[in-house]
Design a protein around this nucleic acid. Structure first.
Length: 257
DNA sequence: ATGGCAACTCCAAGTTGA
């Protein structure tokens, strides 16, 4: 079983790339972030014709998340409970015995800004939601754009980024708090080379120079972490014309659906 | 110290992202 996450930075612009990626990789579930589409113009037919059932919650211009599954998802959540938030940043569904939670964590703008406060509050609410979900499900995967580089090794220039947005101590503590609710960062289940990233700035030829950050993550509950046999970031689609600034990330699980 | 790129939007200059 293969589950994946990709911040596509506009599904309208990246639709063909997404369909190509689905065709090539055949994931059981693909989580998308930054679809930037209202629900009434989501390309449902294109997805279903390719054998994927979409579940989505979107808005104009910003945010927007979706789940594309080979099977139908059930027990769908499209928001964090107890958090009145117009920004569409979370969608969850159950596929077989696996709970899949797709997140687009706020960027935070810069440390100390209103958006930074919102980011930390959002992460606190996410942590509470995950604790609730842990009571209902054993096998949980949380995938998405977390907008946090968990450690210095996840940053191309840790000194330049020290204490900055995506790398601040409070953000990293919030990420650790998520893990402490009962998850592992699947990246660390395997021996990894240095300089593995999932996002590269469009500017300054950052991708060609591998000046990136690892901010897209797949967290697995302990029960399924044991069945994870691969973690990959697919840099091929970052090399195409008009790429997303994020690359797809996926894991392979041995458990069946 | 700033902008650098890309996508979005009452179509065009400002906002947002990371």
């Amino acid at each position: 079983m293969k589950i994946a996450t990709w911040n596509v930075n506009s599904l309208r612009v990246r639709l063909q790339q997404v369909m190509d990626w689905l065709g090539t990789h055949q994931p059981d579930v693909l989580c998308l972030q930054e679809t930037k589409l209202q629900d009434d113009i989501f390309p449902i037919d294109v997805m279903t014709q390719a054998g994927y059932q979409p579940i989505f919650t979107g808005q104009k211009t910003y945010n927007g998340v979706a789940l594309l599954g080979k099977n139908n998802g059930t027990d769908i959540h499209t928001a964090l409970p107890g958090f009145d938030d117009p920004q569409k940043r979370l969608i969850a569904a159950t596929y077989g015995d696996l709970r899949v939670i797709c997140v687009y964590v706020p960027n935070g703008e810069h440390v100390g800004s209103e958006k930074y406060t919102y980011k930390l509050e959002w992460l606190t609410k996410l942590s509470a939601f995950l604790q609730q979900e842990q009571k209902r499900y054993r096998n949980i995967a949380v995938l998405g754009d977390f907008n946090i580089a968990p450690a210095d090794r996840d940053v191309y220039d840790p000194q330049a980024w020290q204490g900055k947005i995506l790398c601040s101590e409070a953000e990293r503590q919030a990420f650790q708090q998520l893990l402490e609710t009962g998850f592992v960062d699947s990246f660390h289940l395997f021996e990894q080379p240095e300089k593995v990233y999932t996002w590269w700035d469009y500017r300054m030829m950052a991708f060609r120079r591998n000046r990136g950050l690892r901010i897209d993550h797949i967290l697995l509950s302990h029960e399924i972490a044991a069945s994870c046999i691969a973690w990959q970031v697919d840099k091929e689609f970052r090399k195409l014309e008009r790429p997303s600034d994020h690359a797809p990330v996926w894991v392979e699980l041995t458990s069946t659906m």
